[in-house]
Computed example of a mutant assay.
Amino acid sequence: MTPKILVIEDEPTLARLLSYNLTQDGYEVKVVEHGGEGFQLAMQQAHDLIILDLMLPGMNGFEILTKLRQKGVRTPVIILTARNAEEEVVQGLKHGADDYMTKPFGVAELLARVSAVLRRTKSDELMSDDLAKSNDKVIIIGDLYVYPEKYEVILHNTSISLRPKEFEVLLYLAQRPGFVVSRDDLMNIVWGFDYFGGQRTVDVHVSSLRKKLEMSQQSVQIESIRGVGYKLIVQNQVKRVTE
């Protein structure tokens, strides 16, 4: 089945460039110029990928991304941002973007990033299917309960809402409590070897994850190891339980 890509971009020249090259590469492409219209289309129709500009009329990219994630739309999103706009990149990742591209960009980079995100999404879906067929398991760390196959986290008997990549970072650390995990390892395991983003992506997700775990500082902490990576510090021994 031909992958469907929704492009939300109001700059005519760039919109045509995206549409032409993606179509030539075998994708089915729909281009929308207005933010509000793009949001409605993303809600009403299924797409395999959304390419989203941040500066849009009607509703900006951050608003679109936030509302989509709040409503449970997990379609992968690549945001488009101005070169050297690091704050936009950070905010985009915090809002749930899967990748980003800085303008101007080359066609080869565009197609490579699109292909990489779609491959990662397919891999995640296959992994989720495999997990769903397995028995329920839980990793217990102090007051923290991590359910790998359900993508659920319980802290102090309260469900903690994590984005998929935040959960995967936490899971990888939880499987190695007390051991230092490098940023490169987290990048490769969670985002894949073909991910184009830098280590800043890892730092942004860890920072967001820390804030959501703050209520259990005495039980679970993510410690930074300068120049190396992170490790999960726990007060109680990790237990693995199969139900």
Rank of each mutant, 00 (worst) to 15 (best):
residue 242 T to D: 14
residue 100 Y to L: 07
residue 25 D to L: 01
residue 16 R to G: 05
residue 57 P to K: 09
residue 131 L to F: 05
residue 36 G to H: 02
residue 198 G to I: 03
residue 175 Q to M: 11
residue 137 K to R: 15
residue 56 L to D: 08
residue 209 L to G: 08
residue 194 D to L: 02
residue 2 T to P: 13
residue 10 D to P: 05
residue 30 K to A: 12
residue 159 S to Q: 12
residue 111 L to M: 03
residue 113 R to P: 03
residue 158 T to W: 05
residue 158 T to S: 11
residue 132 A to Q: 13
residue 110 L to N: 02
residue 98 D to H: 04
residue 198 G to S: 15
residue 38 G to I: 10
residue 115 S to L: 06
residue 132 A to H: 09
residue 114 V to L: 00
residue 66 T to Q: 12
residue 241 V to Y: 07
residue 224 S to P: 08
residue 130 D to P: 00
residue 148 P to M: 04
residue 22 L to D: 02
residue 106 G to W: 00
residue 12 P to R: 08
residue 183 R to W: 00
residue 9 E to W: 09
residue 115 S to E: 15
residue 113 R to E: 05
residue 65 L to R: 06
residue 27 Y to R: 02
residue 207 S to Y: 11
residue 233 I to V: 15
residue 160 I to D: 00
residue 5 I to G: 12
residue 140 I to K: 13
residue 134 S to T: 10
residue 96 G to K: 02
residue 227 G to K: 09
residue 169 V to A: 01
residue 188 N to D: 12
residue 243 E to T: 10
residue 203 D to A: 07
residue 37 E to V: 00
residue 219 S to C: 04
residue 100 Y to D: 09
residue 81 T to K: 08
residue 171 L to G: 05
residue 94 K to D: 08
residue 81 T to C: 03
residue 105 F to W: 05
residue 53 D to C: 01
residue 1 M to W: 08
residue 23 T to W: 02
residue 133 K to I: 01
residue 91 Q to H: 14
residue 26 G to R: 05
residue 96 G to E: 01
residue 89 V to K: 13
residue 106 G to F: 04
residue 55 M to E: 11
residue 198 G to C: 09
residue 53 D to E: 04
residue 97 A to M: 04
residue 160 I to Q: 13
residue 204 V to N: 09
residue 28 E to R: 14
residue 200 R to A: 06
residue 95 H to K: 14
residue 36 G to S: 06
residue 55 M to T: 06
residue 232 L to G: 00
residue 110 L to S: 00
residue 102 T to M: 09
residue 180 V to Q: 12
residue 84 N to R: 13
residue 82 A to D: 08
residue 64 I to E: 11
residue 135 N to R: 14
residue 191 W to S: 07
residue 3 P to H: 12
residue 135 N to P: 12
residue 119 R to P: 04
residue 75 T to I: 14
residue 143 D to Y: 05
